[in-house]
């Protein structure tokens, strides 16, 4: 029972951080879909795993809202083209504010867990 509850809670937490993860990676440099999945997995040592089916809808959503912009690019002849994503000015602003919020939130939860003194 506890396991199920924990799973659900973890899932919700990860879902919330997926958007931040995408914005973070795209803020560093242009990224393509698979690269984002692989990079998030590697950097967090597997703790954060973007579901393959969620990444593209998330990217499309962010693009439709004007936070990221994309461009199909030919990589090499004979190799499927890749869609590269980068932050727009609006996306940059959102990213910065999300990072601030996250730090504040993480700090607050940390203080909470440490207990009152």
């Amino acid at each position: 029972m506890a396991g199920e509850d924990l799973d659900r809670w973890t899932q919700q937490m990860r879902k919330g951080s997926a958007k931040l993860a995408i914005l973070q990676l795209a803020s560093e440099r242009e990224r393509y879909g698979y690269e984002i999945v692989a990079e998030v997995r590697d950097r967090t040592k597997g703790a954060l795993q973007l579901a393959e089916g969620n990444i593209y809808p998330a990217l499309h959503g962010l693009e439709a809202e004007g936070f990221i912009a994309s461009q199909w690019r030919e990589v090499e002849p004979g190799v499927p083209p890749r869609k590269y994503y980068k932050l727009t000015a609006r996306g940059r602003e959102l990213h910065e504010r999300m990072v601030e919020e996250w730090k504040e939130y993480a700090g607050a939860v940390g203080r909470l867990l440490k207990g009152g003194s």
Binding site: G33, Y34, E35, A38, Y56, W72, V79, P81, R82, K83
Partner: peptide
């Protein structure tokens, strides 16, 4: 179609 091609190729490339 492009997305799938690109993604699967990315996985193979890794």
């Amino acid at each position: 179609h492009y997305e799938l091609m690109s993604h699967l190729h990315g996985a193979g490339e890794e």
